[in-house]
Design a protein around this nucleic acid. Sequence first.
DNA 1: AGAATAGTGTCTATCAGACACTATGCA
DNA 2: TGCATAGTGTCTGATAGACACTATTCT
Lengths: 239, 239
Amino acid sequence: MKYLRPSVTVDIVVFTVIDNDLKVLLVERGDEPFAQTWALPGGYLNVSEKPDQDETLEEAAYRELAEECFGFPDDQHPSGDGPIAAPRLDRVYLEQLYTFGTPGRDPRGRVITVAYYALVPEEVLPPIMPGSDTIATRWFSVEHEIPPLAFDHADILAKAVERVRGKMNYASIAFNLVPSSFTKTELRNVHVAVQGKAYDSRNFARRFDRMVLDGVISKVPGFRATGGKRAELFRFNRG
Amino acid sequence: MKYLRPSVTVDIVVFTVIDNDLKVLLVERGDEPFAQTWALPGGYLNVSEKPDQDETLEEAAYRELAEECFGFPDDQHPSGDGPIAAPRLDRVYLEQLYTFGTPGRDPRGRVITVAYYALVPEEVLPPIMPGSDTIATRWFSVEHEIPPLAFDHADILAKAVERVRGKMNYASIAFNLVPSSFTKTELRNVHVAVQGKAYDSRNFARRFDRMVLDGVISKVPGFRATGGKRAELFRFNRG
DNA sequence: AGAATAGTGTCTATCAGACACTATGCA
DNA sequence: TGCATAGTGTCTGATAGACACTATTCT
């Protein structure tokens, strides 16, 4: 028996923290369906006749991320280091989120989408982000300014927010939303932005100090100039 | 531009606990590739020309579960209550696990599989489990007797075990591996079987009593006869 | 000097882990 | 009566939440 095949796409929920506020990257669709509607960046999975030209789901996610978020040209993939000093994808945390495939979620036919989420520090973002096949690309406050979204992208976004909020409590993912050298307050503000609620500075310092004790975080020379007392700098030790 | 479409399948990691041992359901493949090799139950997602005949990913998972685990005939879906008193799928916990799509994972071509895992109490299992298009179906001890598996099913199984182990610590999923009336020791043995390590009876009792206090568990009349002192019975309050 | 931000200590409640004996029912 | 299993209490260490003041730097 022969089976009909659905289309498979990859969508990405890209998060960053700007001005102590959790933001998500949205693109305005140029084509039907949902033309002129905001949507998550994404696109079709590349499937080739020759298996060695196929891409993995994760590679597709990185490709979409590079195109939509960093504005890479199509032939300048993160795997091959291009000649231009491009924003570094190794500063990006990428994780598969969930697969959405309800019939009818795309009016064009049966489309299964494998959703990923990414955490990107503001530090590595390009000042402007030209989309490849889209009209506009912009950061939106997750808390305050999410517009109506195409397809079932509101569900995908909700699931991604839930995942990041939960995972930040037990995994070392907050470091992907902070500069490579960061202050205690900066890291705390990431938690505040993601969870959407205050985090007592003394209680956070206790947790922070424990991570320093455990070698997860190390002090680094220098200070961050702020309006008042200078803040000490730290870095995250991968592994 | 037109895109090639991959095939989409749904695979299920079905767990149960028998004789205080975590078991997984495997089927012996009848067809190439990997004929005569053990594999996770699964099959192609039904995609129709008419959208109203399409099935969701979860429905496909339930369908495979019914066919491979309970031996339902194809036209006796859980949605429509068949005339025969069939094992109840409402006793089954089903959750999406992860989507696997590495090129080359299936030698026939590009196949994306959406993996689910299921927890089924031994109580509702049929004595024998005739597979529909497979030679043999059998429960294997996760700890002691996993044979070489087809495709990347060993990876899928490993991820499912990891998920269940982690989730059992904070979510109410152990109740899906125990009879509808259960004793304190039976529930503890489920934790022991899943985690693969001892759980002090007094420490578990403390946790158990808290759940009774919180109304998650209720005492129920009657006792379970064991070799020694009779054990009190409890039930889980959904919600 | 004043404004702004960094940095710090204690108390309490909850929870997990380690540890061993008594109570009851059945054969 | 003896065997098998159920059921129970305490101490300690780790951690989170609630709570406010002092230290430093810059203007």
